[in-house]
Computed example of a mutant assay.
Amino acid sequence: MSAYTALTRANYRAYVRDRTTVFFTFAFPLLFLVVFGLIFKGQTVEDGGPPYINYIAPGVLSWGVGNAAMFGVAFTLMHWRRDDILRLIWRTPTSLPSVLASRYAVAVGVGLVQAALFVGIALLPLFGLHLANTWPLAVPVLVLGITTFMALGLVVGSIADTPEAVAAIANCIMVPMAFLSGSFYPSDLMPGFLRTFSRALPLRYFNDGIIGVLSNRGSSTDLAVACAGLIVFTVVFGLIAAKTFRWSNRG
């Protein structure tokens, strides 16, 4: 068995063993879907436009998937470093790319299952999401978004030394970003200066990509811009993570 396979299996088993985390990973975005879906049921953003759920469901989905990807890798990295698991791995022939790739495989798998469950529930008559025929393109956009927020999670997990610090830093990043990026309401309703500022946030590009392919909003150029934005943020966060990464809290 290769090091990558063994690490991926260990990551998967550790994830499913924590049933509380698994439950809230899937339930948390669904809670927002229920709240917003029932509040704005049957409403449209503008006269003759698509239903409100076609804006809010993709935004909540991208936020929920990004949130799970960032928190998952941040907590894992922090715990592995604090418990000296990373130091033990460092003393073996296992390479750092194998360690990261194994965690990445789990993050992508969880994110895709999370998205499938979320969309399946949003399609119920109670919520009334209508998928565009471009919806299969959501898969590569989701993978890009998960990659971006996992890279951000590596930064958070490299900086924070305790679970409390991870939660505090991650929440300070994700909660304001959700509102400023249009996850909970259409970005078109925000003031112009906030729409401009949101272009500096990775979640804005994730939202635009998912909304575009699930609700058929925007052109292929808009989708390309969203994907390019996610790639740029992945590179930036990856470089920062490489600079801040530590094998152990001991230095």
Rank of each mutant, 00 (worst) to 15 (best):
D208G: 04
F206E: 00
I210D: 00
T234N: 02
I210W: 01
V213S: 11
S219A: 09
R199S: 12
Y205M: 02
D222C: 08
T244L: 14
A228K: 10
L230E: 05
L194Q: 11
Y205P: 00
N207Q: 03
C227L: 14
T234M: 01
I211E: 12
S220T: 13
P191A: 07
R204I: 00
S215H: 08
N216F: 11
G238C: 04
T234C: 02
R195P: 01
L230P: 06
D222I: 06
V235I: 15
T196K: 10
S198I: 05
A200Y: 08
M190F: 14
S248E: 10
A200L: 15
A224K: 03
S219N: 11
D208N: 09
C227F: 05
A224S: 11
M190S: 13
A242W: 06
L201K: 02
V235F: 10
A226K: 00
W247P: 07
T244C: 05
S198E: 09
G192L: 09
F193Y: 15
A242Y: 01
I231Q: 04
L239K: 12
M190C: 04
A228D: 11
I240W: 11
R217D: 05
R204E: 07
F193K: 07
T221G: 15
R217W: 10
S220I: 10
N216A: 15
A226R: 01
L223D: 05
N216C: 07
L223A: 06
G192N: 11
R199D: 13
D208H: 04
T196Y: 09
I210Q: 02
N207C: 08
A242M: 13
F237R: 01
F237C: 01
I231T: 13
N216G: 15
F193R: 09
T196A: 15
L203W: 02
V235H: 06
G238Y: 08
G218F: 05
F237E: 02
P202K: 00
S220G: 15
T244Y: 10
A226M: 03
P202G: 00
I210N: 00
D222P: 07
V236M: 07
K243E: 14
L230D: 01
M190D: 12
V225P: 05
C227W: 05
P191M: 09
A224W: 04
F233W: 11
V236T: 04
A200M: 13
P191C: 08
R199E: 15
L223Q: 07
L203Q: 03
S220L: 14
L230Y: 05
D208I: 06
F206M: 03
R246L: 08
T221L: 14
F206I: 02
S198R: 06
P202I: 00
D222H: 10
N216Y: 12
D222E: 13
F197K: 08
G238F: 03
S215F: 07
R250G: 09
L223P: 05
S198M: 05
G212S: 11
G229A: 02
V213M: 08
R217P: 00
K243H: 12
R195E: 03
D222M: 06
R250C: 00
T244W: 10
V232I: 13
I240A: 14
T196V: 11
C227Q: 13
C227I: 11
L239R: 13
T234L: 00
